[in-house]
Amino acid sequence: MAKCIIDGKKITAPDGTPILQAARDNGIDIPTLCSHESIEPSGACRLCVVEIKKGKRSKIVTSCLYQVEDGLEVDTKSERVMNVRRLVLALLLARNPASEVIREIAVKMGVNPQPRFKLDEDKGKCILCRLCVRTCADIVGVNAIGLSHRGPSKTVGPPFDEDSSACIGCGACAYVCPTGHILMEEKVDERKIWGRRFKMKACDTCGRYFAPLDQLEFISKKTGVSVADLSICTSCR
């Protein structure tokens, strides 16, 4: 167990707990975009920055990655922290003017779009946090999408920006996306994601369309359970 102080509050947390989690467990709110309970933290969005003090020195770290230590003093709302966070938000606002989530956080923190940052028109709502890419690779195990090109032209998507043959249409990337950049259109028996249409499978019992056929085939191949056995939706099972 590590004893530390967050915003003047004495906190004990198990060794290895990230500051972000320790703070949230104790009712201290830190804004984030790229943190998700099912995926290892990666420190991509830089919104969760906090100031830590060890002895006389203090520095800015990402609270999702930095772990609690004995005698650590954390300030989640100091002027220095807020300055960094406001700058990060101003940059995100300029990159993704269309994102409601980012605008909401900005309004909450009183950050306005700054004229010195030119608004991007071609980035959509993507903040390049890689949550979707890591979900697809580590959790689903499909590797259908990734980040291609680099610098200002870096984009998320399937290889060759068109070929989504590896995709199984599970929609996990759209689910995990913090800003809603990834679009998934659903009609009754069809789902469209990454420019590809997926036929949905109807539940053998209740007849509800519940999963794309490609996903069931993928699960069947991985687990050895036949597609026929997988053709009953979770609520009928």
Binding site: N143, A144, G146, S148, H149, R150, P159, F160, D163, A166
Partner: peptide, 25 residues
């Protein structure tokens, strides 16, 4: 060539996406 990159993925058992990421980076 695109066709060769796809072959690289198959032959080396690397997801095509990874190959494409490196090739465009």
């Amino acid at each position: 060539p695109v066709a060769i990159l796809k072959m690289v993925g198959q032959e080396m058992d690397i997801p095509l996406m990874r190959v494409y990421e490196v090739a465009t980076f």
